[in-house]
Design a protein around this nucleic acid. Structure first.
Length: 669
RNA sequence: GCACCCGUAGCUCAGUUGGAUAGAGUACUUGACUACGAAUCAAGGGGUCGCACGUUCGAAUCGUGCCGGGUGCACCA
């Protein structure tokens, strides 16, 4: 049961009435949520549209209110409708029968309705997110990617979709090569030395990815003056790509250790994965060769014979006009025969969609506490029994907006080979970067030029070592939250203080990253990001915890008793909803029941911020409700029953929407 | 040069795909805790929706042109 059932029924009624009375068939009947509870539960601006149509047909000006009047009588026939009002210039405002709806709402299922049966026949959606280069610790920009991706996964699952989560590991790229160069040539360390260092770091309590963070920045500085070292980079990269040598083994160790660290960071944020596909396997299992062959056969690419791209295999790209400086075609294979990153990406995307005709080998990487396994690809013989990966109907790639152009090429490339699947199968879930305010950069100890200080923001840079490391920020949030919890709940133990502090910290961070829409650049500011008041995750958690605490004080059977009372006395309930505070109660109920359509909307727009905003609004409505109306002291038993059930509906919806954002509801706070 | 994104309250951002009086948070001012928990609530001021035309019953939203800011466009990954 959900609001959409009511809504769909009304839409159908409108369609048939319009056809009957005006002989017009309308495809889409838009419905809006009225700005105020007093305006009703649903509004149809359909009369305006009809007025326009009729004017075209007859040439005469039409009155939208008169049209609305004709539709009104038909809608009044619908059984769950209490009233229809014509408002403003011609809105049809629908009022549901409140007590009827309320009774049904109480017995309804609440999201998320996760698809528990792993039915291979249901279509699979694949979401790739995180994909941090495994050469350093994750920073706040990476966390935006992961939180966005993970929340979108949760939203899809709440909608009943089957989703596979992939975290692509670029273990053979220049970024890993740079750190390897640092170990080999700046620190003169071989693999054994690094392993020794690694265990020393563990003893010192320093994370391996933090060590790499600094080393990577040192290499970046050294490159600026040391041409010899830069030459080593090319050699090192080549050896890593080639595989089967000492440098490649060292690189694999470094990359794997960084992946372990990054996964640990993500685990703190309740972010998990199904598969870690690695670039080394895309290379060594010759995915590109196969994709290349298919692209040639379909005429998606051609060999440039003249001009400055002579000898390269290129994909034409008309939508981007060329110029002297920039070519309009995209090179996929260089004149020396090597494939570009975008080329590899097309091959990998083709695999994800189950169209390549090749597969990886797989082995387990590790196990989460609940027993769930994370798998990783391997060039060597894998495990015989493994889940089926890839073969997705639709693939979402969570990648920042700076990669829009290569993502467009990938999408178009795959669509050219498989026109039957088209461009719809590949979705670039793009988002803007997280940058630093000049103040935040200075707070991190970076010295800025006068020019930089004038800028509105400063881009984070792993190469420069400039960024807010994820674990540092989480530590800071946990510490702040822990101190607050300890003061507020002196009766709880140390373990509980820590646990609740952790849950609050993660709630704060996830909500902070989700409340901005995707294409807003987040200019990171410590004060805003660590706030526990106002529009924050903590606010939403607090509203839910307080609703829960009301139920702790009520009798165990209070809810059942309230439901019985409501069931047996609908007239009394109608009276209460029509009474002085009826709108206060009804407003919460009807908002709580918009969770499902909010999820649908979030998927349609590929925009998790929609859910964040909804959750905050519901938390606010709940706060207002329990602040203004006291349940425990209410003497009218029917009114108390209604209030109890309103609180129940609100907390169920709040809990579900927070869970869908990966935010836990603490026991107390 | 070309493509994409952004410009809304002092600041940070929403704005349900063209609808009702443009909303939140924050900051500032004032008020409310012997409490279903004040990480809260109530009240107040604060707007040329970058500018100009256009489309129509109706524009922050769509179109065109400017102005300002950002990102991308390598035989880098």
């Amino acid at each position: 049961m959900s609001l959409s059932v009511f809504q769909n029924h009304l839409v159908e009624t409108i369609k048939s009435t319009v056809k009957e009375q005006f002989e017009i068939s309308v495809e889409n009947v838009a419905a809006e949520v009225p700005p105020k509870t007093e305006f009703g539960d649903l509004a149809f601006p359909i009369a305006f549209e009809l007025a326009k149509h009729l004017k075209k047909q007859t040439g005469e000006k039409q009155n939208p209110r008169a049209i609305a009047e004709k539709l009104r009588s038909a809608l009044l026939e619908v059984n769950f409708i209490e009233d229809i009002q014509i408002a403003g210039p011609g809105y049809l405002n629908v009022f549901y029968n409140r007590s009827n709806f309320f009774a049904k709402a109480l017995s309804a299922e609440v999201l998320p309705r996760v698809n528990k049966v792993n039915n291979p026949k249901t279509t699979k959606i694949c979401v790739e997110h995180t994909s941090v280069n495994p050469n350093k610790a994750a920073h706040i920009g990476h966390v935006r990617n992961s939180v966005l991706g993970d929340t979108f996964v949760r939203i899809l699952r709440a909608d009943g979709k089957r989703v596979e989560v992939q975290n692509y590991i670029d273990n053979t790229g220049v970024q890993v090569a740079d750190v390897v160069v640092g170990f080999l040539f700046l620190e003169q360390k071989d693999l054994d030395d690094i392993k020794t260092l690694d265990s020393e770091l563990v003893e010192q309590g320093v994370s391996f990815d933090y060590y790499c963070w600094d080393l990577y920045a040192r290499v970046g500085v050294e490159y600026q003056t040391n041409e010899g070292l830069k030459a080593k980079r090319a050699e090192t990269l080549h050896a890593i790509e080639e595989g089967g040598n000492e440098i490649a083994d060292l690189a694999e160790y470094v990359a794997t250790r960084n992946v372990e660290c990054i996964l640990k960071t993500m685990e703190r944020l309740s972010i998990r994965y199904d598969l870690l596909p690695r670039e080394s396997e895309v290379l060594h299992l010759h995915f590109w060769k196969k994709a290349f062959q298919m692209m040639k056969e379909k005429g998606a690419i051609h060999l440039a014979e003249a001009g400055k791209m002579a000898g390269c295999w290129v994909m034409p790209f008309e939508s981007h006009g060329g110029s002297d400086e920039h070519d309009q075609d995209k090179i996929l294979v260089r004149s020396n025969g090597t494939v570009t990153y975008t080329g590899k990406d097309i091959a990998f995307q083709t695999w994800k969609l189950g169209l390549l005709g090749l597969d990886f080998n797989y082995k387990t990487f590790n196990k989460y506490k609940n027993g769930k396994e994370v798998w990783i690809t391997t060039t060597k013989t894998g495990e015989n029994i493994h889940p089926s990966f890839g073969n997705a109907e639709v693939v979402y790639n969570v990648i920042d907006t700076r990669q829009s152009y290569p993502q467009e090429v990938v999408k178009k490339g795959v669509a050219t080979i498989f026109p039957e699947r088209g461009e719809e199968a590949s979705v670039h879930l793009s988002y803007e970067m997280v940058a630093l305010s000049p103040g935040a950069a200075e707070e991190l100890g970076f010295i800025l030029s006068d020019e930089d200080r004038q800028r509105s923001f400063i881009e984070m840079s792993g190469r420069k070592g400039l960024g807010v490391k994820a674990d540092d920020l989480i530590d800071r949030l946990e510490k702040n939250a822990y101190q607050e919890v300890k003061v507020r709940n002196p009766d709880l133990g140390e373990e509980q203080h820590k646990q609740i502090g952790h849950e609050i910290a993660i709630g704060a961070l996830r909500y902070f990253l989700l409340k901005f829409t995707k294409n807003t650049v987040i200019i990171f500011d410590f004060k805003e990001a660590t706030a526990f008041e106002g529009e924050t995750g903590v606010y939403c958690q607090n509203a839910t915890v307080r609703l829960n605490s009301i139920f702790k004080k009520l009798d165990n059977n209070a809810l059942d008793a309230a439901q019985e009372l409501i069931k047996h006395d609908p007239d009394k309930i109608s009276e209460i909803f029509a009474g002085d505070h009826g709108n206060d109660f009804w407003g919460v109920v009807v908002l709580a029941f918009r969770l499902e359509e909010t999820i649908t909307q979030a998927i349609f727009a590929a925009e998790p911020a929609v859910l964040a905003r909804y959750t905050f609004n519901l938390a606010k409505a709940s706060n207002l409700f329990y602040q203004k109306h006291r349940i425990l002291t209410e003497t009218d038993e029917h009114k108390r029953a209604v209030m109890t059930c309103v609180a129940e509906i609100a907390r169920r919806s709040l809990t579900a929407s927070l869970q869908t954002m990966g935010i836990k509801v603490p026991e107390r706070m």
